[in-house]
Design a protein around this nucleic acid. Structure first.
Length: 152
DNA sequence: GCCAACGTTGGC
DNA sequence: GCCAACGTTGGC
């Protein structure tokens, strides 16, 4: 079992949207490192911290889990789609995605500020300088610490 | 809207 | 393979 943090902009797709849709294909990821995590390491049932970025306040908004493992991201084949990539073909797909399932919305957002102020969480990729990945691994300890903060 | 940090692209 | 130019991310 692995643990992950996935970023999303709530103006575009937030925890409430996931709650409403129940599941969501995580399409549009066009970063190789993030793609590799989805393609190679994310397994069904893995737990996900759903993070709201580019908003105020930014922070972990709830929990999700992987409901479908890696499969090609179809949005790169569609010329009209903003994620269209002519270098990715059906024969040799370049981009992959997983499907995520809603688990829980936190009563209280665990804000980025709180995370920064928590000693146990200073190892998180999220708060390391220069890390702008939209998907990143989280340790079980970090995951549980976030849960505690959410319940506090 | 600004801007620092970083990834990607493309000419050489 | 280098590196300048450009695009994107994301907190503030």
């Amino acid at each position: 079992m692995n643990f992950w943090l996935m970023k999303s902009e709530p103006d575009v797709f937030g925890i409430d949207d996931l709650k409403k849709n129940k599941t969501e294909p995580w399409d549009g990821v066009r970063n190789y490192q993030a793609r590799n995590f989805m393609r190679d390491d994310m397994k069904k049932g893995d737990k996900i911290l759903f993070y709201h970025s580019s908003c105020s306040p930014a922070g972990v908004a709830g929990l999700a889990e992987v409901s479908k493992e890696s499969h090609p991201d179809h949005t790169c084949y569609d010329k009209k789609n903003k994620y269209y990539d002519p270098k990715s073909t059906k024969e040799a797909p370049r981009w992959f995605m997983v499907e995520v399932k809603f688990k829980k919305k936190f009563k209280n957002l665990v804000t980025l500020e709180e995370i920064k102020n928590t000693k146990k969480l200073e190892t998180m990729g999220l708060v390391k300088k220069g890390n702008r990945l939209s998907i990143m691994p989280v340790s079980e300890k970090e995951f549980n610490t976030i849960l505690k903060l959410a319940e506090a």
